[in-house]
């Protein structure tokens, strides 16, 4: 690692930290209904939305109504996204005359975008028309992110309110999250990205003459190349800010039209963590104690930077197979050194690894390098961050509500150790909350391990694995970790666009999203009905460094216990074989 590495990580961290507080407080104002700077511009639009949709913005919902609204909205969205893909050949804005997407791929992609996963078994430029990319996929990037934030806000309200069964109005939270937070940020980012060279056009793909002529294996000469373009910038902005991650092009943010310059790279990687980090402050502000938000942010950041350090170390070591061949992998003025397989030369090790750790921890899933080509340890870092239930920053809304569930589990365990009644933010944690919290924590683990086991046992699962041995197993384990935790990144190498994987990964994404949301909202409903109890000498403070350490320990131990045996069959044994050879 060079000084340049530390400078770049330092710059990234400083900008992120500087943005967390203002954005977090702004989002709190949006959800608390306080006046904001954007009111004059957006309030009329908001009122218009409510009028045409027939929403009574003053009425509130119980947790059951809130959950039912979220589920109904998601179901309708799924059908719409499925339908647009199947009918795209008949719809406008399809200059390449692309055919309808296959039924199994439409099923998988609809689920993927509605659940905020953005797992992509298809290649964007050769599969999706401009209309599908915009109307189906980009719209869901906004909606799925806003729905996750709405669920989080309902949970936060449960800590603030007492003796009520009302948690707010899902439709109001959805609309406000979209038009006050996601749309303005995305608009600003998209404009900057266009200035950097990210394409935004309805023009058909361009046929250009090759600078260097080439021939195919059967001797046919190739003189031209088709360059895919499209309305990419508007999709790229929200794919990062909404922690969606689905690329406009197949190569995602390694494609020069999605991520052309060092500035576009910095802004995109910042955007991945921006809202999940700022929501911690939103939480602190809404519960009336900002220290609570800082404590959760500190826990996330500590794990993030430790994992970043491990991945940077591993990738800077280079590839031992190349070392045996005498390939120079040392840092010099001419090369960044280390393991550069699958990485863009223009980004080097630091910016590739920073992106990989950010995208894995934040449930984003976009990539600017290929995780399949990382060293076993580098790949393990990305995979394990996903397997920690996506609570180290996590998805917008979903990451923080996952972390709050871990905080509830932590106060419960601390209570067991010292014989105190567990309470969090003045609410007693009872048997029902712990049952639901256990479901939230264990469900993704079950889906990941079961899905992986089924896939490696069946011929349909094994036949599209591109690597033999532990690396092939890692590809499958990574795919299920990514789907069930709604991350969406792929290890690459696994041929996942088959009816088998489209079906089973689709089901994993559905369970990972909706069966997690139900217990979270049930906890919210239960806590809102409880009285707030004042702090006493017996209360475990939840804003102190001790609590941060306890919380990290619970997250890490649960993650380690659940996945160590599976990881031992994949990246760990691969690392041992690697170092041995």
């Amino acid at each position: 690692m060079t000084i340049n590495t530390f400078l770049q990580i330092g710059l990234f961290s400083a900008i992120l930290l500087a943005c967390v507080k203002p954005l977090g407080l702004f989002m709190a104002s949006v959800y608390l209904g306080r006046p904001t700077l954007l009111d004059r511009l957006i309030r009329p639009l908001e009122s218009w939305f409510y009028r045409i949709a027939g929403i009574d913005s003053k009425s509130e919902m119980t947790w059951l109504q809130y959950a039912s609204s979220l589920l109904t909205f998601s179901f309708v969205s799924l059908i719409a996204v499925y339908g647009i893909q199947r009918l795209q050949c008949l719809l406008p804005l399809n200059p390449e005359s692309l055919d309808a997407v296959s039924p199994d791929s439409s099923f998988n992609t609809a689920i993927s975008f509605v659940t905020n996963t953005n797992w992509q078994g298809y290649s964007g430029e050769s599969t999706m028309s401009y209309l599908t990319q915009m109307l189906a996929l980009t719209v869901q990037n906004f909606m799925s992110a806003a729905a996750g934030m709405a669920a989080l806000v309902a949970l936060i309200r449960a800590f603030v309110r007492q003796e009520t069964n009302l948690l707010g109005n899902f439709w109001v939270d959805l609309v406000r999250g979209t038009i006050y937070i996601l749309l303005p940020l995305s608009l600003g980012l998209a404009i900057i990205l266009v200035s950097q060279g990210v394409v935004q056009t309805f023009s058909p793909y361009r046929e250009v003459a090759l600078l260097e002529l080439t021939t195919t294996s059967d001797g046919k000469s190739i003189t031209t190349q088709k360059i895919a373009t499209g309305p990419a910038a508007s999709q790229v902005a929200i794919k990062q800010l909404g922690t969606n991650g689905g690329g406009f092009f197949n190569a995602n943010s390694a494609h020069p039209f999605e991520n052309p310059t060092p500035l576009s790279n910095l802004l995109q990687v910042l955007s991945i963590l921006l809202i999940p980090a700022a929501l911690c402050l939103t939480f602190g502000e809404m519960v009336g104690d900002r220290r609570q938000g800082w404590a959760l942010l500190a826990a996330m950041s500590i794990v993030f930077f430790i994992m970043l350090g491990i991945s940077l170390y591993a990738e800077n070591q280079g590839n031992s197979a190349f070392a045996k061949l005498g390939v120079d992998q040392a840092v010099s003025d001419l090369q960044s050194g280390g393991n550069m397989e699958g990485k863009e030369v223009r980004f080097g090790i630091t910016n590739s690894v920073l992106w990989s750790v950010a995208t894995a921890s934040a449930s984003n899933g976009s990539v600017n390098s290929m995780h399949d080509s990382y060293t076993p340890l580098g790949g393990l870092v990305a995979m394990w961050l996903i397997q920690l239930d996506e609570v180290i920053f996590g998805g917008v809304g979903s990451g923080l509500y996952g972390m709050i569930i871990f905080a509830i589990a932590t106060v419960f365990m601390a209570g067991l150790m010292v014989g105190r009644t567990p309470e969090y933010l003045g609410k007693k944690i009872g048997a029902f909350e712990m049952k639901m919290a256990s479901l939230v924590i264990m469900l993704p683990c079950v889906v990941v391990l079961l899905g992986t086991a089924i896939s490696v046992m069946l011929a349909q699962g094994r036949e599209t694995i591109s690597n033999p041995g532990p690396h092939g197993f890692s590809q499958v384990l990574y795919a299920f970790s990514s789907a069930a935790n709604n991350n969406g990144s792929a290890f690459a190498g696994l041929g996942a666009n088959t009816p088998f994987y489209n079906g089973i990964l689709g089901l994993s994404m559905l369970i990972g999203r909706f069966w997690m949301l139900l217990p979270v909202l049930a906890i919210a409903g239960s806590l809102a009905e409880k009285k707030k109890i004042p702090n006493s000498n017996g209360t475990l403070p939840t804003h102190t460094p001790l609590f941060v350490v306890l919380l990290i320990a619970v997250v890490v131990i649960v993650g380690a216990l659940s996945f160590f045996p599976a990881l031992a069959l994949g990246p760990i044994v691969e690392h041992i074989l690697w170092t041995k050879n």
């Binding site: 059951l64 499925y82 099923f107 029902f432 089901l507």
Partner: peptide, 30 residues
Amino acid sequence: MDFVWLLALGCFFVVTFLLLNGISSLRTDK
């Protein structure tokens, strides 16, 4: 084929709404 995939989606949401009811009754039972 569309029917099969849409049916799968429908079935998942029916099960999910049943689960929602189940969790809700679990709370009432406590």
